[in-house]
Amino acid sequence: MRLRKKWWAKPELEKDHKVIFTPKEYKGKWKGFFGNDHPIHLELGCGRGRFINQLARMNTNINYIALDAHNELLVHVLRKANESHLNNIKVIPIYIENIGDIFAQDEIEKIHINFCNPWPNKRHHKRRLTHPNFLRLYQNFLKNGSEIWFKTDDELLFADSLEYFEVAGFKELYRTYDLYQSDFHGNIMTEYEEKFCNQGIKIKFSRFRISTQLNVAR
């Protein structure tokens, strides 16, 4: 995704305490940073933030962290959170490959990956957020029994990701190739999802749980 540079985005983010530019300082201390003992959930590649802001409004007993590399997107996440006066959402500008540096073991209880870049060229597959290399990073900080929820419009990415999760030792809990014709309830539509649905593209969705054995092995 190519974004037009917005010079005002970073200065706006820097003025708000919800945005953390030095997340390494809080590794192992995130519950203290939120000021409570609530579970912490992540969205990796949060876009403009419709999804995570709606989750935060619906679940005030859960803390949410939105991660994305683009200040031009994160500023919209922040504005939505402030418009709704949400205190249970934080924003981190970061490349996801650095995520292992900012969370400690058992610190996170759920990850949402929505419509990540499919990187269709085979030589770029390792950049996919569902690739085993990334899944092993997530395993380092996910609590026992934690889940990853994954949505995409891309058929090849979905098929490959099902294999990735299996290879990495995750247990599949749910799978559908057409979310809006499935028995799954409680879905929250993202901005990309709305666009794809309007084009008649079927949304693929799956849930996975980290296994007890993996946590013990760590």
Rank of each mutant, 00 (worst) to 15 (best):
V167R: 07
T152P: 04
D154C: 07
Q139N: 09
K5G: 14
L179K: 09
G47F: 01
R128Y: 06
G100M: 03
H112K: 05
G169T: 08
I40G: 00
T176P: 03
D154M: 05
I99E: 00
Q181S: 11
L214T: 13
N114F: 02
H85V: 09
Q213P: 00
I94H: 00
T60D: 09
D37I: 11
H85Q: 13
E97N: 14
K122W: 07
L86C: 07
W149M: 12
D16N: 11
G100H: 03
T190R: 01
D16E: 10
F115A: 01
G35M: 06
K10F: 04
K31W: 07
K18M: 15
S84C: 14
Q105Y: 08
R48C: 04
E163D: 13
L137P: 00
K29H: 13
L13S: 11
I188G: 04
S84D: 14
G47K: 02
N117S: 13
W149L: 10
A217T: 13
I203H: 05
F103T: 08
S182E: 02
L135S: 05
S161L: 10
I111H: 00
K90M: 10
A217S: 14
Q181F: 03
I52W: 00
A81E: 02
R4H: 12
H112A: 01
F21R: 14
Q213A: 14
P93A: 14
Y64Q: 02
V91D: 08
E25M: 15
M1A: 06
K24C: 14
L86R: 05
K6I: 12
H70C: 12
Q181W: 04
N53M: 10
Y164L: 08
E193R: 05
D101P: 03
N187D: 13
K29I: 11
L173D: 12
M1F: 02
K24A: 15
R175N: 02
L42S: 04
D68Q: 10
T176V: 09
V167H: 12
V19N: 03
K15G: 11
I111A: 02
R123T: 09
L67A: 06
L214S: 14
K195A: 13
V19R: 01
Q181P: 01
R136Q: 06
E12K: 15
G49W: 00
A168K: 01
I201H: 06
F34P: 02
Q105G: 10
F170L: 04
K143I: 12
F21W: 12
K80D: 08
E107K: 09
W149V: 06
T176Q: 06
I52E: 01
L44W: 00
D101W: 05
K204N: 03
A159R: 11
L44K: 01
L78Q: 05
H17Y: 14
T190Y: 01
S146I: 01
H17W: 14
S211R: 09
Q139D: 08
V216N: 08
K204G: 00
V216Y: 07
E193K: 06
I108S: 00
R50H: 13
K27T: 15
I20N: 01
